[in-house]
Each structure stands twice: as structure tokens, then as C-alpha cells.
Write a protein that binds this DNA or RNA. Structure first.
Lengths: 133, 133
DNA sequence: GCGTGATTACTCGGATACAAGATGTCCGAGTTTGAGCGG
DNA sequence: CCGCTCAAACTCGGACATCTTGTATCCGAGTAATCACGC
């Protein structure tokens, strides 16, 4: 149980876009160089971010990836969900009698919700502001 | 990023011990049969629970696993930490200039702490009581 | 000078490779209980 | 009846096998901008 490296990449890539290039598209090449990671692997993460509607891809020459309009509203949870998926962290694999739900699962899912609420309240834009000052 | 099946096993095994056999040692064989999982794999989880000080192992005939004294105080977090380890869920892999810490990492670790506080407040014994009524 | 085509700089998606971790099995060693047997 | 031995019922730990997932690379296809060339 750990957040994947991919999430780390995605969070830093988004932070870079918000902080340094809110309007111009940035190519994978530049982004990967800034972060010091592989281009091809980073591009997979960016593709996921596009599919989740957080950023926009601009094909062709001078293309790259650009933030969407709602940049102030992008939360940590949005990015994490884009990479890790939205599935629950815990799923009970036992059959409990008479259709009743698993109490253990309920507790763990409540705990998960605590974390998600926190991550939803934290916006990438706030971190970008802290960086600049 | 998911809780492992092993955690699922361990939580249910502990719930069984607290609810049904607070004093007598229970063998892996019986426990595995109740849960419907493999004996040998379950025993690995129980070994981890022993090393974390949550249960006690009784070797020899009529042996098995027995709860320790502080059974009322065992939290979900104790069990999860025993199986998954206590390492942080997130570790930033980038070098940030001038010794400053990664702001992203701080946010995610704070979120993790939210979840852990919740899991620490939930005791297995409370769930056992709910089951009985 | 203007349109047309070729080249270039990108993204996109699939196929592949590799390593690590989760899951599960097997077996030998150690430990306690209890039964059996000889005195 | 007492004590000794031995077998049975357990846990413990390591070695091993397998499968999934994360990480990473490579390549061909598609797309847009820019450059070159011919008229």
C-alpha cells in the first residue's frame, strides 16, 4: 500500500504547469527535463491527466500540454484519482451472512473518505503560490 | 495504491479472535477454515501480528494464537501497520533546492495522518460488540 | 507572391520488457501435550 | 503407579513458485506548423 511513483510525477508536473506555464503548452520533452524523469513514461501520466479533463493536449509542432480553464479548482485528489483510479482502497473478500455489509469494510472506507476530503480541500494552485513567495 | 488482501485476512482474523475466542488459543487450521482461506498463507499474517505484539503464539499441541491482554485497545491502525508496515504512503523522489522540504509531500503526508487518526480511534472490540447484538 | 507539398516537432496508442511485490505452497525444525509402555 | 519415551499436534522460518502490477522503453500513426519549391 503505497502511492505510485507515477502519482509523484503527475503531481510535480501539474505543479510546474500551474506555477510556471499556466497558458502556453509545454512539451513532454521540456517537462521531463525539468523533473529529471523519462519522457516516454511521463507522457503516459499526462495522457491520464488529459482523459480526466485536468489538462489539454495540443498536437503538432509547438504543441504540448496545457492547463484547462478551471486551474484554480484542481485539487490533489483530482490528480491522484486521475493516476491511481477512483476504486476503493479496500474491498472485503468474505461473504457475510444475510446480505449485511462488512463492518470492517465500512470502517476502512470511512477512513479513506477522511483522507480524500483532506486531499480534495488542498488545491495545487495554493501550493504554487507558496512556492513563489 | 490498495490495501493488500493480507490486511483483509488479518482484520477478519483479529475480529474473530476478539469476538469468539478472547481467551483460548485458536489454531491456524480452525481460523483458516472459518475465514475460508489458505492455512499456510494466513499463518504468515499471524506471525506478523505476533511480531507486532497484538497476539500471542502458543506452540505445541492444543496450541494456536491467542489475544494479548490489551484486547480492548487494539485499533484498526495497529493491525494495518502490522501487515502493511509503518512506512509513509508517499515519498517525493525529486531534489528540491536549498534543503527545503517538498510541499507536495507535506500535503499528502498530512492527508495520510488524517486517515491514520481515524483508524487509530476505531477499535476492533467495538466492531465485535456490534456484531453480537 | 502564392499555393502546394515535404519536413519537422509534437502527441497518441499499442506492444513489449523487466523488476518488484503480493499471493500462495512446501518442507524441515522446534515445542508442548498426551498416550503407551516398562519397571 | 510412576517415569520414560515416542508420537501427534501445533507453530516457526526459510525456500520456492506464480501472478499481477508498476516502471520503463520502443515504434508506428496521426496532426499541426513551418519551410521549400515551383509556377
Amino acid at each position: 500500500m503505497k502511492f505510485s511513483q507515477a502519482t509523484d510525477y503527475a503531481l510535480h508536473a501539474m505543479l510546474f504547469l500551474v506555477a510556471e506555464a499556466p497558458d502556453k503548452p509545454v512539451s513532454v520533452q521540456v517537462l521531463a527535463e525539468k523533473l529529471g524523469v523519462s519522457q516516454t513514461y511521463l507522457s503516459k501520466m499526462l495522457t491520464k491527466l488529459v482523459k480526466s479533463g485536468l489538462i489539454h493536449s495540443v498536437p503538432g509542432a509547438n504543441g504540448g500540454y496545457r492547463l484547462k480553464r478551471n486551474r484554480e479548482e484542481i485539487s490533489f485528489l483530482d490528480i491522484i484519482h486521475a493516476i491511481e483510479g477512483t476504486a476503493s482502497l479496500f474491498e472485503c473478500s468474505f461473504k457475510h451472512g444475510s446480505g449485511s455489509e462488512c463492518l470492517i469494510q465500512q470502517v476502512v472506507m470511512d477512513a479513506e473518505r477522511q483522507m480524500e476530503q483532506f486531499l480534495e480541500s488542498k488545491k495545487i494552485a495554493d501550493i504554487a503560490k507558496q512556492l513563489k513567495q
